[in-house]
Design a protein around this nucleic acid. Structure first.
Lengths: 122, 122
DNA sequence: CCCATACATTTCCATCTGGCTATATTGCTG
DNA sequence: CAGCAATATAGCCAGATGGAAATGTATGGG
């Protein structure tokens, strides 16, 4: 393997750019759902939702099984994780704006400690 | 005030969906740049880059000053932070999958006592 | 004052996107 | 097997998007 990971980010961010798709992901965060269950709250036609699901699937954000006529959709968080990591690379930008160059210089000095901080759920 | 913050996320993710714009942000992470400096590495026309900058500005991801004829562009990380936080809400999804995997592995270890439990965090 | 420099705006074009309706497919069920 | 229920696919349309080329607008320098 070695497919361009940048193109994958394209699709992930493009998928997240749509509020309907973000809402679908929000719903899927609570567990699997069928297509009709996903259609219900949105006041959109079923084919429209199916198209959104295809976009999400193309971004790797969801995957689908088969259970009789049902095609359960479940969230696949790996691409989200990669997107978060991409954004995380810019974290020093907003940390910089807080403490200005001062903090940046200090941070340079402790650069190898970057991964020390662990975050527990609150 | 009271503008929908969801629309802001729309624009942020849409802005991040384009590799050129992500590259522009990457360049800006090293500090301010003029438009021409941003045009140089991209083999795209200046108006095209200006358009990209407008999209980034519309998402709040960059802001611009004025210095003589120059319009220095600087990164504005706050929207990135909000996007990261949005994605972070789904962190439990991949933590859950890790937990499930972890539990599964542990369960295997208990069933087959010949194998010592491998504690493999992060 | 005029021109070069840096950038924005306008116009045009091809392609993509999100929505719909209509239709096809697939698998259960009577 | 007929038919329904769940979902996918196809075709269509309006509007957004990314690109280029041409032109407009400030600002500083000779």
């Amino acid at each position: 393997m070695g497919a361009a990971p940048t193109q994958q980010l394209d699709r992930v961010f493009a998928a997240l750019a749509d509020p309907t798709r973000r809402a679908i992901l929000a719903r899927l965060a609570n567990g699997e759902a069928t297509v009709n269950e996903l259609v219900a709250p949105f006041d959109l036609s079923q084919p429209t939702i199916s198209k959104h699901l295809k976009v999400l699937e193309g971004a790797g954000l969801v995957s689908r099984g088969r259970n009789a006529q049902f095609r359960p959709v479940r969230i696949n968080a790996a691409p989200l994780q990669r997107a978060a990591r991409w954004i995380g690379d810019y974290q020093r930008c907003w940390e910089e704006s807080l403490d200005q160059l001062d903090a940046y210089v200090k941070d340079l000095g402790r650069k190898e400690k970057r991964h020390a901080g662990k975050r527990k759920r609150d």
